[in-house]
Amino acid sequence: MTDAPTDTNPTDSAARTPEPAAPTHRPLVVLEKVNKHFGDLHVLKDIDLTIGEGEVVVVIGPSGSGKSTLCRAINRLETFESGTIQIDGVSLPDEGKELAKLRADVGMVFQSFNLFAHKTIRENVTLGPIKVRGLDKDKANERADQLLKRVGITEQADKYPAQLSGGQQQRVAIARALAMDPKVMLFDEPTSALDPEMINEVLDVMTGLAKDGMTMIVVTHEMGFARRAANRVVFMSEGRIVEENTPQEFFTNPKSSRAKDFLSKILTH
């Protein structure tokens, strides 16, 4: 970010503030004028967003605001009608092998874990490296064991996903994504399906990743994580990015009325 963006759009001039200085050098994920409809519902409206290398961006907003759709559009699990999304300078291809190649560089962690039910924990982590990166099995296993250790799963490598707790499954899902050495990691409400006592074990792993310099886009309701680990908070409402700011600024001094309203609902109890 060499120069601060100028506010020219009168409709959200009150909300948009200059982007905070992120510990970043070059833009890694760039969305320009992205639009998407579900039938008549306009779920993404002219989304412009640039995420720099090493930046941790937390996307928050009320349910139905389009934040999950935004996250999923970045590796084209959702299609969009207009606009462009670039990852490391390359536009998302429509389908086929090129898209698969690009997706391999984008790690994704889902709300419902989505570990491969018929494969062991270790096989879940090694499948991508073996089938997509062409790694040999021994090397893939070795790396899988390192990654599983990193997310705190050591004894369960030969079990099946259904034998693990939700928190453990989600940590395996993070290891599975990391095994591809992704340039950026997407988290789509990674703790929303977890029992409360398991949320922290997942957030701790994510905080560790953020500290290690991983570029992350995180859709979440965990405000504590946003405060602790994010460089920037993006607030969405009704398909638009309404406000973006540093966590500290955003939580203590929200500009838009919708953000104020949202924060008052989630922070008062």
Binding site: L77, A100, M108, N114, V132, R176
Partner: peptide, 12 residues
């Protein structure tokens, strides 16, 4: 979600 996770790690 199984197919989505498969696509997300880059499988064709």
């Amino acid at each position: 979600g199984q197919a989505e996770a498969a696509r997300a790690i880059g499988l064709t």
